[in-house]
Simulated scan of single mutants.
Amino acid sequence: MLDAKVTPLIKPLLKPIVLFLNVRNVTPDQVTVFGFVFGLLAAPFIILNWFGVALVCIAINRICDGIDGELARHQNCSSSAGGYLDICLDFLFYAAIPLAFGIANPADWGAPALVLLATFIGTGSSFLAFAIAAEKFQIDRPQFTNKSFYYMQGLTEGSETILVFVAFCVWPIYFPILAYVFAGACLITVVTRIAGGYRTLKQHEQSELIKKDVSHG
């Protein structure tokens, strides 16, 4: 929900870093992997209850996630392979954070962590499944023209997820409440994405059939 509004505000702030990395021949994929490694490091720190350090790792991961795409566009080397790597590592990172909280305190945090992970599977699968179909029908998304894949919006997107991760680390005692609330929001995203995606694809399929009938007529 917030990604389309937040992204234009962040891009200018990343420009100096992008220029710095470009001069040193750093590739976007290297930034992606570097950010992913730091993101995963948050998990053991959460398990150790070192939430401040975990928060720093999460912040570095998100900064790198913004830099890699901007660097790719600056170097004119945006690719489907890079986009694929980025989204796969993003979803692994997203799953690692609630998993770490569940491991840190199985008795109190295990159940909400599992519920949140289940809804993450729903948001991720509905997001990626539609992206495949959108590529087939060449459906455009004006708000995210620079993305290497179709970016399907929803109530819970990357920005909201990171805000919740920050809240987890700042107020870990409230993890169960925050996790259940965000899981509910993710569930709404899943339902609306599936319903909206189904309607959109049905419309495009019908349009394709009409075009074929006209061409054969």
Rank of each mutant, 00 (worst) to 15 (best):
A129V: 11
S207H: 07
L71F: 03
I194Y: 08
I10P: 00
V214C: 10
P106L: 10
H204F: 14
N61M: 07
F130V: 05
L41K: 08
I188W: 02
L92D: 00
C186L: 13
S148W: 02
H216N: 13
A59S: 09
G122S: 03
L14P: 02
T156H: 05
F127M: 01
Y198T: 14
K202E: 11
I17D: 01
V214E: 13
L178A: 08
P176V: 12
Q138T: 13
A42Y: 07
D29R: 12
K11N: 10
V115I: 12
L55K: 05
F130E: 06
S125C: 10
F175R: 11
V115M: 09
I177Y: 06
R199V: 12
D29P: 05
V170N: 01
I17A: 13
Y174A: 14
I177A: 10
C186Y: 03
V56E: 03
Y84L: 15
L2M: 11
A96C: 06
G39A: 07
R193E: 04
G158N: 10
G196H: 05
C57W: 02
I162M: 05
T119D: 08
A111H: 09
R62G: 01
L155T: 14
V37L: 15
L55I: 04
K15P: 00
A111V: 14
H216A: 15
E70N: 11
S126N: 04
P112K: 08
V53D: 02
H74N: 09
R193V: 05
V56D: 01
Q206G: 02
C77E: 08
K212Y: 07
S126R: 07
A42L: 08
N61D: 04
G122T: 05
H216Y: 13
A118S: 04
G35M: 09
L89G: 03
C64F: 07
N25M: 12
T7N: 06
E157W: 08
S80I: 15
T161I: 11
T156I: 15
A42Q: 04
F127G: 03
K212A: 08
D3S: 10
G52D: 09
S207A: 15
I177T: 14
Y94P: 04
K5T: 13
V37G: 02
L92P: 00
F127A: 03
S215R: 11
A54S: 12
A96T: 01
E205F: 12
W50L: 14
A81H: 08
